[in-house]
Computed example of a mutant assay.
Amino acid sequence: MGILRNAAFRKSLKYLAMVWDAAGFISLMISSAFWFRNWFMASPADRAAEAGDGVVAGAPDRHVVERRPNAHGPVPVLHHQKRDHQRLHRRHRQLGDAWGKTAPFMQVCYKADPEFVRCSTEAVQMIMDSIKNGLPALGIEPLDPFNIPEIKILQGGDGPVALNASLVNVTVRGLTSTKILSNKVNFETYAFSTQMKIPRLRIDAVYTLKGRILVLPIVGHGDAWLEPEDLDIMSEVDLTLRSEDGITFFKVQDVQVNFTIGKLRLRLKNLYNGLKALEDSTNEYINSNWRSIAGSLKPILSRTIADLVGDVLTKLFDGVPAKYFIGDLS
């Protein structure tokens, strides 16, 4: 008991108690800060769940609230299987959207507007002009140049062209010169019909081919370039509506493309293992008969363009709510 009467020891106990209280206060402040951060970042459904018994009426199954006791009482712990809401918020912050403003590259059109087609055509042109450098927030790569890892061409039968060919390391230039001529929307199915024109494309690739073009047997491997000009393209995009965290989005179901070409020039290097005279005469023959060749390859090229358009639209529609395309969406 003598040590408890010691003034220095009692003073040490007093300081220790003060330090203990301060540590407890700091711990409480940190816990509160984390709680408020989680509260303000949570969705309205999550906040409502916290006030209830841990189950959100009518909410998707992926939103589950588990209550775990701790020293400060029950604190809700939110489990999101996909964390869709946070992902969507992050995307729109990157786009400068903030859920209440139109994304900077969007022009909202309304079904009730008699000039809807004009507005929609301008809106699609704005998108094309804005995504030429890509949209990293949506995973859209730059359109110029646009890179395609591989294109396979398998054209058999008795037609003018019979080829087994592949193009790798494909680079397409000129897509940013696309002019949108018209964009119409079916208000019942929300299918998009878009007519566009591309003055000129330049396609560079490494090719491998074996087959026949018209009456000419052909074989080769090396660098190639193609320059189609005056492309008139009509795309039909079938869409459905989907809901994610109470927000409506378009979903691409199918893309069909039809096109015509005003002119086509191309060059295949290293044909016939580098026999220069035969290579030159074959390229001249191909360019002289480009219409037959383009017609035979049209189904394959249409599918390639459709895949390209579908990839870009899927990423765009996946990240931007449908109301920013059509404001009075029902």
Rank of each mutant, 00 (worst) to 15 (best):
G159S: 02
P145H: 01
N283V: 08
R202C: 00
F249E: 03
H85R: 09
A165T: 03
D245H: 02
G157F: 05
S182A: 09
A45G: 07
F249D: 02
N38Y: 05
K132L: 07
A51K: 14
G58P: 07
D307P: 00
S120A: 13
R267V: 15
L135P: 10
V64I: 14
E188W: 01
W35D: 09
L95G: 08
D318I: 04
Y207D: 04
W225I: 05
I140A: 09
A191D: 15
V312P: 02
F187Y: 10
F192W: 06
S182N: 11
W39M: 08
L231T: 02
R83S: 13
S243L: 05
W39H: 08
L88G: 04
A59I: 10
K315S: 07
T178R: 04
G310L: 02
D61W: 08
D328K: 07
D328N: 13
T304C: 01
V168S: 14
A57H: 15
C109V: 11
A57Y: 14
A17C: 13
I305V: 10
K263V: 02
D129Y: 11
A23F: 15
A59W: 13
N164A: 06
A42N: 04
A42H: 08
E279Q: 12
F192N: 04
W99T: 11
A165P: 02
G262A: 01
K14H: 13
Q155L: 02
L216W: 15
S177Q: 14
N283H: 04
Q155E: 07
I131H: 03
T282L: 03
L201V: 03
F105A: 05
M106T: 10
K323Y: 10
K298E: 03
P136I: 06
V215K: 06
T121A: 08
K263S: 09
G156P: 11
S12W: 11
N258C: 00
D84N: 12
S27L: 07
Q86N: 10
R291G: 00
K276I: 07
V320P: 01
